[in-house]
């Protein structure tokens, strides 16, 4: 059964400059926008002499800058604040294997930075590109991935993975687990959009919800129940904001993949990750509402087989152990 009219599109994006961020499903969106000739913004391109096969290992070409996966609304807000000097977290380095990783993107490089200076140089450079995104983009696409996160007790910093998983060490006196609620997520996204609009009043936002289920949960619930809760909250927030603001749209990638009508056919055999044809199907619905630019040539991207979605969610399995 072919379901049509999944999505109408609130505003035109075809010739607009588009930036992406979010949980790992957002990588597919950015990649397909680029591939189909949209004005996809990549403010932080790889060094010209780095082989293409390495780009993803170093966090290049995944999103509009090298921030890695941003799972929660609070992380997104804090990224904006960190980039604009409005928030300086007290914990800027996590030790790992004799070096240091950035707690806010601990897997951005395959090896830890050799010292704090190297990490600082990389972070400062990166944050300059985050600022650039908010001045250059016309559309900011954000895929909401999780409600669960790990928070620093002292200053409220929210991390993409639990401390101790990809660096640092878990200390229950320093960190706590938080399952963000509807009101908190909504408030964070509203605050984020307000801040962006002070810099770029014309910015529009497009929210999606990742159809990738949780691999583990730090709540005491069954992971399927926790997934349902998490996705429901995120979906409700996205829907509420899209209803409330003219400049916010919602694209139902979550529904297209997860609807019972499709009987899970868009999932890989692991029943969790999305098959390439599932992603193709989602994006084909998107392109019905937003056709690729007429004169745009299809751009080469890595073969689908070679494209490895960089997803920390496997690492989140450790959440359960720490709960």
């Amino acid at each position: 059964m072919e379901i049509t009219d999944w999505y109408i599109g609130k505003y035109k994006i075809t010739n607009k400059v588009i930036a992406t961020a979010g949980s790992c499903f957002a990588q597919h969106i950015g990649r397909h926008l680029y591939k189909n000739g949209f004005r996809y913004l990549d403010t932080e391109p790889p060094p010209s002499f780095m082989k293409r096969e390495r780009h993803n290992d170093f966090g290049y070409g995944i999103y509009s800058a090298r921030y890695g996966n941003i799972y929660t609304a609070k992380q997104l807000l804090q990224l904006f604040d960190r980039a604009h000097g409005e928030y300086v977290p007290e914990e800027l380095y996590w030790e790992k294997d004799g070096g240091y990783v950035d707690p806010f993107r601990p897997t951005i490089e395959p090896k830890p930075f050799v010292d704090k200076d190297e990490l600082d140089a990389q972070r400062n450079y990166h944050l300059s590109f985050v600022r650039e995104i908010f001045t250059k983009a016309h559309i900011f696409v954000f895929t909401l991935g999780l409600t669960e996160g790990w928070v620093n007790k002292n200053d409220g910093a929210v991390y993409p993975v639990a401390p101790g998983v990809s660096g640092g060490s878990y200390d229950p006196k320093k960190y706590f687990f938080k399952n963000f609620r509807f009101n908190e997520i909504q408030a964070d996204l509203i605050k984020f959009m307000e801040k962006v609009k002070t810099i770029n009043p014309a910015m529009r936002f497009l929210f999606t919800v990742s159809p990738v289920p949780l691999m583990a949960t730090a709540t005491n619930q069954n992971v399927i129940v926790a997934t349902s809760y998490s996705k429901s909250v995120l979906r409700a927030v996205a829907g509420t904001l899209a209803e409330r603001y003219k400049f916010v749209d919602y694209f139902p990638s979550y529904e297209i993949i997860t609807t019972h009508v499709n009987q899970g056919m868009f999932y890989n055999p692991d029943k969790r990750t999305i098959a390439d044809y599932g992603v193709e199907h989602v994006m084909s619905q998107f392109f019905k509402a937003h056709p690729p630019p007429r004169r745009a040539k299809k751009r080469p991207v890595e073969e689908d087989d070679a494209f490895d979605v960089q997803c920390d969610e496997e690492l989140l399995e450790a959440f359960g152990e720490k709960a």
């Binding site: 290992d57 170093f58 490089e109 190297e118």
Partner: peptide, 8 residues
């Protein structure tokens, strides 16, 4: 970074 240099 050193890791990038090594990779290159």
């Amino acid at each position: 970074s050193k890791a990038m240099r090594e990779a290159i």
